[in-house]
Design a protein around this nucleic acid. Structure first.
Length: 230
DNA sequence: TCATTAATGTGTT
DNA sequence: AACACATTAATGA
């Protein structure tokens, strides 16, 4: 198991301002210049660390690190309305991170200066950020525990449940995870390997917990949740 | 359409 | 978990 890196994954999520109310995002977005990124583009790399905050308006972005051996480790998958960036003040511990567009994206770039100005004008925005960070920390603890105790199968189910929560689309008994994730990408999120993920997904399919297709995953949340209990 | 690449499935060490 | 290899689906010239 790769606890040290897993730990970094969950802790680094704390830095993100996801789940920020739409109204505030819009307000911020209004001042920020619009930008686009095409599928596969690197929006942030460790060298060119823009002193900016990125507001994802449309599309999916994946944050990842490279291990010393050059393997990718996914920190988080972000959807529309999420914020990410490299501003020291709010991202302690998030250096060395890459942000890559998983699909074509529309985003806004907020320069450090503008953000600071905004926080001065609307201090309550800072309070809101703090609340979000606290919630993130709580979640991080919960997820860390799963990682520490669970085996691959349990970690995978847990990850799928989390992704279903965030990106799920109901389809009858199943919930479609609306990301085009490959087994390799899933593996890089739970510190496992592609083959192991493939094998576990097969077994979960036999148990009727998930249904898979190429870059396609549906999960029966009821059965999955039941699996997490023991 | 055909050739190439990407994703997945499986067996072995 | 790592590796090798087979199979199948997607991509794009």
């Amino acid at each position: 198991m790769r606890v040290p890196e897993d730990r970094l994954w969950y802790l680094s999520q704390i830095n993100l301002f996801s789940e920020m109310p739409k109204a505030d995002l819009e307000r911020i977005g209004a001042k920020a210049p619009m930008s686009t990124a095409r599928k596969g583009d690197l929006i942030i790399t460790p060298d060119r660390e823009g002193q900016a905050l990125y507001l994802l308006k449309e599309g999916r972005v994946r944050l990842f690190r490279l291990s010393p051996e050059g393997k990718e480790f996914t920190l988080a998958v972000l959807g529309s309305g999420n914020v990410f960036g490299e501003i020291e003040t709010f991202s302690a511990g998030s250096r060395g991170v890459y942000a890559q567009a998983m699909e074509d994206c529309f985003l806004c770039v907020i320069l450090k200066h503008d953000l600071e100005e905004l926080l001065r004008a609307r201090p309550e925005l800072g309070v809101k950020m703090l609340r979000i960070l606290t919630e993130r920390l709580r979640e991080a603890g919960e997820l860390l525990e799963r990682l520490a105790h669970g085996g691959i199968r349990q970690r995978l189910v847990h990850l799928l449940l989390k992704l279903a929560e965030k990106f799920g689309v109901e389809e009858g008994k199943f919930t479609r995870i609306d990301l085009n994730l490959t087994h390799q990408e899933l593996a890089s999120m739970i510190g496992s390997t592609r083959e192991t993920v493939t094998a576990n997904l097969s077994s979960l399919t036999r148990d009727g917990v998930v249904e898979t297709g190429r870059k396609e995953i549906l999960i029966d949340r009821q059965k999955a949740a039941a699996l997490m209990e023991p």
